[in-house]
Design a protein around this nucleic acid. Structure first.
Length: 422
RNA sequence: GGUGAGGUGGAUGAGUGGCUGAAAUCAGCAGUUUGCUAAACUGCCGUACGGGUUAAACUGUACCGAGGGUUCGAAUCCCUCCCUCACCGCCA
C-alpha cells in the first residue's frame, strides 16, 4: 500500500499515475488527505488528554504515599472526567484510522514513469524477442495430444481424483517436472539466490503483506477450518520471511520452488485446454529486497536472468512491458515473458517480473537503515523463473519430431536422457 | 487432543501494581588507550504516530505474543485467543 506521507507530498503525481493504470480514483486521494488531517487532529486531542490522565495518576500515587487520601480522591474524580471526555475522541480516532486504512488498502500501486499507457494486453509493448522459431514436422500436434501419446500427463485422472485443472503427471512427464524444478533452482542459486522451501499455506497476515488480500480474496483457496490460504505463488511465503524486519544487509535474494494454487474463478473456454491454465501448477520463483535506489537495476538484472533461462531452454520468447491497464494491483512496473507455442500458434505467459517498490514492504514493514540510521522501507521485487506448465507445453510442442520429443541439452543431466520416446 | 511451564528490546535475561520504555550482560556503533591483533576504558545503542526544527536538539502518546477487562494507575492482576517448550495420547 502507498504511504500516506508519499501521497501527501505527491498528490498530483499520484493522481496522474493512477490514471495511467485506468484506476478511477474518484476523489479517494483527497479523502485520504482529509481523513489523515482529521486523524492528526484527533490524535493530538487524544494524546493531550491521555497525557493529563498520566500525570494526574502519578500525582495520585504520590498523594497516596503521603497519606493524603481526600486530595487523592478528588484527583480520581478528575481522571474519571478526563476519561469520559476521552471516550468519544478515542472512538472517533479508531474509526478514522480504520476508514483511512480501508481506502488506502484498495488503492493500487502507482505505476513507474516507465509504464506505457493503455487498457488491454494489446497495449503492452514488446521490448524484445529472442530464441529461434521452431520448425515443426508435418502433423505436429498440441501438447495435450503429445501428453497422451507419450503418456506424460493424464488430465482425466487428475479430473477424477480432484477436478479439472489438476493434472496428473506420469512417468517421464513427472520426471520432466522434477528435472525442470531442479534445473531452475540450481540456476538461481548459482546466481546468488538463497534457496527456500516454504510452507504452502499462509495466514491472513502474510496474504495481506504481499497484496493478495483484500484484492484477490476470491482467487485463493481457503482452508476455513484453520483460516489458512493455499499460496497462489511462492512470492507470498518467501517475501513474508522478512515481514516486520529491519534488514541488516541489502540486497536479499531468495528463490523457492512451490506448487501454486489458483482458483481462476471466471476463466473457462479454450484458454484452459491442457496445461494452458490450471488450478495447481509448479513454479520456481525469485524474490529480491533491495535499496530503493537500486530496485530498477535489480529489475533489469532479473529480466536478464530469466531471459537467459529461456535462451538455455531454446524457446522462442518475447518480453513485454505491461501497459498501465494490464499491470497487477501491487506492481509499479512489470515485464511479462511469453514463449511461443508453435502447435497452438500462440504466445503463452511463463514469467512475470515486477518491481513493487515499497508497496508490499510498506504493508510488511520490511525496512533497512539508511545512512543516518533511520529505518526506511526497502523495495521488493519478484519474478517467475519459471512457471512450469506452459514451459512444458512449449517444450513438448516445439521439440516434437515424428516419433520422439527432444529434450533441451541443459536438462539432460537432470532428466537422464535426451529424448522422450513412446 | 490432554496436562504442566512459558512468551520482555538484536541475543541472553531481571522485573508481581506507581520511582520501568523497561536493570544487567553480550552483540553492535563511535571514541580513548595501544607496535598490530586482542584486551581495557568511556559514550551511544527500540519502533510507530503526532508536535517541534532547514535538519537536529527537545517533546506528547502508544507498544513487554494478540485482543479485551479490572484499576486513579498494568510488562506486572483477570478473561479469551495464538504461539513455544516438556510430558502423555494419536500419527506420517
Amino acid at each position: 500500500m502507498l504511504q500516506v506521507a508519499f501521497i501527501r507530498q505527491n498528490v498530483d503525481l499520484v493522481k496522474r499515475r493512477l490514471a495511467v493504470r485506468n484506476f478511477a480514483e474518484i476523489g479517494l486521494i483527497d479523502s485520504i488527505i482529509n481523513l489523515d488531517d482529521f486523524r492528526k487532529k484527533l490524535q493530538a486531542e487524544n494524546d493531550q488528554i491521555l497525557s493529563e490522565v498520566n500525570s494526574t495518576s502519578k500525582e495520585i500515587g504520590q498523594l497516596m504515599a503521603k497519606g493524603e487520601k481526600d486530595k487523592a480522591n478528588d484527583m480520581k474524580k478528575k481522571v474519571a472526567d478526563l476519561k469520559l471526555s476521552l471516550q468519544p475522541i478515542s472512538d472517533k480516532l479508531d474509526e478514522t484510522e480504520k476508514q483511512l486504512m480501508d481506502i488506502i488498502v484498495r488503492i493500487p500501486n502507482v505505476p513507474s514513469e516507465k509504464v506505457p499507457p493503455g487498457k488491454t494486453p494489446a497495449d503492452n509493448i514488446v521490448v524484445r524477442e529472442g530464441g529461434n522459431k521452431p520448425n515443426l514436422p508435418a502433423g505436429a500436434v498440441p501438447h495435450w495430444d503429445l501428453a497422451a501419446k507419450y503418456n506424460l500427463i493424464n488430465f482425466e485422472l487428475g479430473n477424477k481424483i480432484t477436478g479439472s485443472g489438476f493434472p496428473l503427471y506420469v512417468n517421464k512427464g513427472s520426471k520432466l517436472q522434477r528435472a525442470l524444478i531442479q534445473y531452475f533452482l540450481d540456476y538461481n542459486t548459482a546466481a546468488g539466490y538463497t534457496e527456500y522451501l516454504p510452507p504452502f499455506m499462509v495466514n491472513e497476515q502474510s496474504a495481506f503483506g504481499t497484496g493478495q488480500l483484500p484484492d484477490k480474496e476470491g482467487q485463493m483457496y481457503f482452508v476455513n477450518e484453520d483460516k489458512l490460504y493455499l499460496i497462489p505463488t511462492a512470492e507470498v511465503p518467501v517475501t513474508n520471511i522478512y515481514r516486520d524486519e529491519i534488514v541488516k544487509e541489502l540486497p536479499v535474494k531468495m528463490t523457492a520452488y512451490t506448487p501454486c494454487f489458483r482458483r481462476e474463478a471466471g476463466s473457462y473456454g479454450k484458454d484452459v485446454r491442457g496445461l494452458n491454465r490450471v488450478h495447481q501448477f509448479d513454479k520456481v520463483e525469485i524474490v529480491q529486497l533491495t535499496h530503493p535506489a537500486k530496485s530498477y537495476d535489480a529489475l533489469e538484472e532479473m529480466v536478464l536472468h530469466v531471459e537467459k533461462l529461456l535462451n538455455n531452454l531454446n524457446l522462442q520468447y518475447r518480453i513485454l512491458k505491461l501497459c498501465g491497464g494490464d499491470m497487477g494491483f501491487t506492481s509499479a512496473l512489470t515485464y511479462d515473458f511469453e514463449v511461443y507455442s508453435a502447435a497452438q500458434q500462440k504466445w503463452l505467459e511463463v514469467s512475470s517480473v515486477s518491481n513493487f517498490e515499497s508497496f508490499q514492504t510498506n504493508r510488511m514493514k520490511i525496512r533497512f537503515r539508511d545512512e543516518n540510521g533511520k529505518p526506511q522501507l526497502a523495495h521488493s521485487l519478484n519474478g517467475s523463473s519459471l512457471a512450469l506448465p506452459r514451459i512444458v507445453a512449449c517444450l513438448l510442442e516445439n521439440n516434437q519430431t515424428e516419433n520422439a520429443i527432444n529434450i533441451p541439452e541443459v536438462l539432460h543431466k537432470y532428466f537422464g536422457s535426451s529424448q522422450i520416446k513412446s
